[in-house]
Simulated scan of single mutants.
Amino acid sequence: MKRLNILLSISILAALLLSACGAAATPTAAPITLTDGLNRSITLAAPAQRIVSLAPSNTEILYAIGAGSQVVGRDDFSDYPTEASKLPSVGGNMGTYSLETIASLKPDLVLAAEINTPELVKSMQDLGLTVYYLSNPKDLDGMYANLKTVAQLAGRESEADALVSSLQKRVQAVKDAITPDAARVTVFYELDGTTDPTKPWTAGKDTFLSQLISMAGGSNIGDNLAGSYAQMSLEELLVQDPSILLLGDAAYGATPEQVAARTGWDALQAVKDNRIYTFDDDLVSRPGPRLVDGLETLAKLLHPELFK
Rank of each mutant, 00 (worst) to 15 (best):
L4Q: 12
I6D: 09
I12D: 09
I12G: 08
L17G: 08
L18N: 08
S19E: 03
C21W: 05
A23V: 04
A24G: 06
A25L: 15
T28Y: 04
A29C: 07
A30F: 06
A30W: 04
P31N: 08
L34E: 02
L34W: 02
D36L: 10
N39A: 13
N39L: 11
I42S: 01
A45W: 02
Q49S: 15
Q49K: 15
I51V: 15
A55H: 03
P56V: 01
P56E: 04
T59H: 11
T59G: 09
T59I: 09
E60L: 15
L62P: 00
Y63I: 11
I65Q: 10
G66Q: 09
P81E: 01
A84F: 08
S85Y: 02
P88R: 11
P88W: 10
S89L: 10
M94G: 04
Y97G: 03
Y97M: 12
L99A: 11
S104L: 06
S104E: 03
K106M: 14
K106N: 15
P107C: 10
L111N: 05
L111Q: 04
A112N: 05
I115Q: 13
P118M: 05
E119A: 15
L120P: 08
L120H: 06
V121K: 04
V121R: 06
Q125V: 01
Y133A: 04
N136T: 03
N136C: 00
K138Q: 09
D141Q: 14
D141F: 02
Y144N: 08
Y144D: 08
L147R: 02
A151M: 07
Q152R: 12
G155I: 13
S158D: 07
A160L: 03
A160E: 03
D161Y: 00
S166T: 15
K169R: 14
R170H: 07
R170S: 05
D176V: 11
I178C: 03
T179F: 00
T179G: 01
D181Q: 05
A183N: 10
V187M: 12
V187C: 13
F188W: 13
F188L: 14
K199N: 14
A203F: 02
L209W: 01
Q211M: 07
I213D: 10
S214N: 14
S214V: 04
M215V: 01
A216G: 11
S219H: 11
I221D: 07
N224H: 08
A226C: 05
G227W: 04
S233R: 02
L234I: 12
L237I: 10
V239K: 15
Q240D: 09
D241L: 09
P242H: 08
G248E: 05
A254K: 09
T255H: 04
V259S: 12
A260K: 13
R262G: 00
W265H: 09
K272L: 12
N274V: 12
R275L: 06
I276V: 13
F279V: 10
D280M: 13
D281I: 12
D282C: 05
P287S: 10
G288K: 07
R290L: 06
R290E: 05
L291I: 11
D293W: 06
L302Q: 09
H303A: 06
E305V: 07
F307W: 10
K308W: 02
